[in-house]
């Protein structure tokens, strides 16, 4: 029995904004199936009382002083922009959408 179907890979690829060809979807479905089967071995381990380990360091978040430092210049900020206009980055027309999180 397969753990993952091509349609699910398609849904995930859309969520990750990753255009994949049908051939890529097909291949990736098979590869992911094998990888997920292997990964499922962790499910056998009892981790009931174990705290998740989110960080390898054991100290608290360091804090910096609220002191502004010089910005990048507008040119430095924009020097790698694939498209720009004046001091702005340019993107295709934005139709207000659910993109905004908040």
């Amino acid at each position: 029995m397969s753990r993952i179907q091509p349609d699910e890979v398609r849904t995930i690829a859309a969520l990750a904004r990753l255009r994949l060809s049908d051939a890529e979807i097909e291949r990736m479905t098979h590869e992911l199936d094998a990888i997920l089967e292997y990964i499922d071995t962790v499910k056998n381990l009892d981790t009931g009382a174990t705290e998740p380990m989110t960080h390898a360091v054991r100290f608290d978040c360091p804090l910096r002083q609220d002191e502004p430092k010089p910005s990048l210049s507008v040119e430095e900020a924009l020097q790698n922009a694939p498209r720009r206009r004046d001091s702005f980055f340019e993107v295709p027309r934005i139709v207000p959408s659910t993109g905004e999180g908040g």
Binding site: D66, S71, A77
Partner: peptide, 30 residues
Amino acid sequence: SSSTAFGKEPNSCTDPVCLGLPGALPVLNR
């Protein structure tokens, strides 16, 4: 640590962190 000033020239108050440049890391403001 770039400035929060309002009303400046577009993209004149940026740094690698707030532009999301590769390799930049956040450090929290006390």
